[in-house]
Amino acid sequence: MDTFVLVLLVLGGCALLSWPLGRCMRWAMDPGDDSGHRRRALEGWFARSAGASGRSQGWKRYALDLLTFNALLFVLSFACLALQQHLPLNPDGKGALEGSLIFNTAASFTTNTNLQHYSGEVSLSYLSQLGLMWLQFVSAGTGLAALAAIARGLAGRRDMGVFLVDLQRATFLVLLPAAALVATLFALGGVPMTLSGAAQATTLEGVQQLIARGPVAAFVAIKQLGTNGGGYFGPNSTHPFENPGFWTHLLSLVSILVLPMASVWMAGRIVGRMRHAAVLFAVMLVFLLAKVGTAVAFEAEPTRAFAELPAVEQVDGNLEGKELRFGAAAGSGPLWAVLTTCTSNGSVGAMHDSLNPMTGLMPMLGMWLNATFGGVGVGMINMWIYVILAVFVAGMMVGRTPEYLNRRIGTREMQLAILTVLAHGLLVLVGTALFAATTWGQGTLNNPGPHGFSEILYEFSSASANNGSGFEGLGDNTVPWNVATGLVMLLNRYLPILLPLAIAGSMAAKRPSVTSAGTLSVQDATFGVMLAATILILGALTFFPAAALGPIAEHLLHHP
């Protein structure tokens, strides 16, 4: 299939699907007082399950409940991984994992990152895989719950909801039904779904071969829908059991994008500003199209890796590291690479290390900006931070007091917004500098020069953006890598949730102002352009020097 048609099918299809889905998600996450009898009964059950914390919460209580629940997730997943050799559902006798790898994996799946420094089929028991799958539901639910709470705060509601109730709404009413549907489609498409141990096969040469399998369809469905990205198998979605062919490939691409897109509409409905949501959606879509277009264009050039091989004729772009089962030759790989990094998903449909340098820059750009739809729930939260900064800058430019959704933006909100943006940049750049300058990073590289630098930069970008994809070519299962990326994942999962929660709480406590002719409109194209410029300038100021040392330098080396 032609790349253009594939892009149109996936992006257009997701955009169309996201509208009704956003309405459903609003119904699920913020039902209002006029719900029917059955829904009220369900809400009563959710509130009872939430126990003592079933009463309405301000931002502080909400944030503390969110942190407590996630700390508990971390401990449980840590225990499950550390004790897997003693626990049931281990038909292939998987042994104990090394301590720092357990830390990294527990942090990774608790934070919705799914950075994997191991191969699931080699290292993990079925119970560990199922435990990680559970985390893929509740970590995505955490993001969606946080978005609902922040939207309520920005809408001026001091009662920001109840975290444990929101989490149940997100898990049982959004993620579980969607995952059941997609898992069934994956199973019909040939993805295994079994608790039997590895299959034994006799090859044509008479050799016995063990073929890993398991509850893969269920795992892959929530992996994509929850913008988790962690593969059941090491090769992720390039493995024929995770992604057998073109139709499962298409289903995966749609599953990656559809909930982050719908999150924008859900948030717009909760704050009651659908035209504003449409502007944000349009800005995100333009960025996404620009990144996909750039990646596909640069990938049309043959790879330099085969340039010296006279027998290799490259007529269809860079085919190194691509799976031709998925069709679209070189175009399918960059499309997946951009979608999976823009949405904080991190599943892999082509080898990112093999992308041409400037193509490889696009996934990094997706993770640096982290708001081109972004992760389920959290992508929209990130976009709101950019919106607050854009409104403030626009207010300063025209000499008016900055206001957003009829609430004045003050010093405190700006300090918290700046802290949120700085945290991401600091964690990526300081980590990269440290590992590029020491043997912690240098000793684990597979490539010298700018490409090696890109491998380090990508790994920290992926950890900090809670993406989880790997550039690979990096021996990353070492104690320094496991500890550093584990800490980065934990810090930059919760800082961009806690700080915006505090902003929303602070805005909700303010007296609403009256809209006048002097109020900056946030629902027209002018604001969209202002927002896009703010994102670009902030992104460039923070990350351009690092990009220049990595992918841009590598590109210029090949094109003197």
Partner: peptide, 30 residues
């Protein structure tokens, strides 16, 4: 013992995030 140290490292990170939340809440109250 090795794994326990890593578990403590994770819990210490969560403790720092708890502390940050309380500091932010105090800043708001002031």
């Amino acid at each position: 013992v090795n794994a326990l140290l890593y578990l403590l490292l994770g819990l210490a990170t969560f403790a720092a995030l708890f502390a940050l939340t309380l500091v932010l809440a105090r800043g708001e109250a002031e």
